[in-house]
């Protein structure tokens, strides 16, 4: 088996006459933290949804863990965790129940589920909140719980769709540390984000997509060097180092998206 956890080949996604994903190809290697960047409506979420078999492909082929997603989706989903952009927690249930009930969907025995819930509550510093209902949690805690829930089946691949959107800087930095921890444990992670700083810090490799196509692929540092140079001059005349944000704006343009 190859070292690629995800193999995307000429994948397309059409909704009626609108093409959201227009023939993209990329690989994600085992143990990698891979970033999927792009403006709103670029096709990030559509791509992610095809990776875990939520949306059917309109064209091309997609393999995860060596399984064709169209036929092997059950095996694939058993080994991955997804944290959605929108919170989908059971609001009236407790933090612990959210984890243990979700374990049920994977057919994880109750004793094992309880054990894993303990570990995850600890890992995400939620142990004092285990009996609290989701309604009582702050935004940051909810997001931590959502990621904890995505890890209940001890996945080899973690998919995060804008995991830090709407979080304060403290919570965001704390989450980055957790993601780095997970990566050290050998979990392959694919994430979408609008924060270039986040992508630059976390990602081993990333792609920037727009209008359903890949504009560029590479390591953050290489992309900065290639597209933003080592020093650029801002219009105010103050020199500073080029960043991934400069690369992003250069490639996707500055006009606002709908």
């Amino acid at each position: 088996m190859s070292d690629n956890v995800i193999e995307v080949r000429e994948v397309q996604k059409r909704y009626g006459t609108f093409t959201a994903v227009d023939g993209i190809s990329f690989d994600v290697k085992r143990g990698e933290l891979f970033g999927l960047l792009g403006p709103n409506g670029a096709g990030k979420t559509s791509t992610i949804r095809m990776i875990y078999g939520f949306s059917p492909l309109s064209g091309g082929s997609l393999r995860v863990f060596g399984h064709d997603i169209t036929t092997g989706w059950r095996d694939v989903r058993a080994r991955l965790g997804v944290c959605h952009q929108e919170d989908s927690l059971d609001e009236e249930m407790s933090v612990r129940d959210n984890l243990e009930i979700f374990a049920g969907f994977f057919g994880i025995p109750r004793a094992v589920a309880r054990d894993r819930a303990n570990k995850l509550l600890d890992f995400f510093s939620l142990e004092n909140k285990e009996k609290a209902s989701v309604r009582e949690l702050s935004g940051g805690m909810m997001r931590r719980l959502a990621i904890a829930r995505a890890l209940i089946n001890e996945p080899d691949l973690l998919i995060l769709d804008e995991p830090t959107t709407g979080l304060d800087p403290q919570t965001r930095h704390q989450l980055w540390e957790k993601l780095a921890d997970l990566k050290r444990q050998g979990v392959t992670i694919i994430l979408t984000t609008h924060y270039m700083e986040e992508a630059a810090q976390l990602c081993d490799r990333l792609i920037i997509v727009d209008h359903g196509k890949i504009l560029v692929e590479g390591r953050p540092r290489d992309l900065v060097a290639q597209f933003a140079g080592n020093q650029i001059i801002e219009s105010q005349g103050i020199p500073r180092m080029g960043t991934l944000e400069d690369v992003f704006l250069k490639l996707t343009g500055r006009e606002l998206r709908e």
């Binding site: 989706w73 059950r74 969907f105 994977f106 057919g107």
Partner: peptide, 10 residues
């Protein structure tokens, strides 16, 4: 979004 969440499981 309960269904969406479950659709990430087998």
């Amino acid at each position: 979004k309960t269904y969406d969440a479950i659709r990430a499981t087998p």
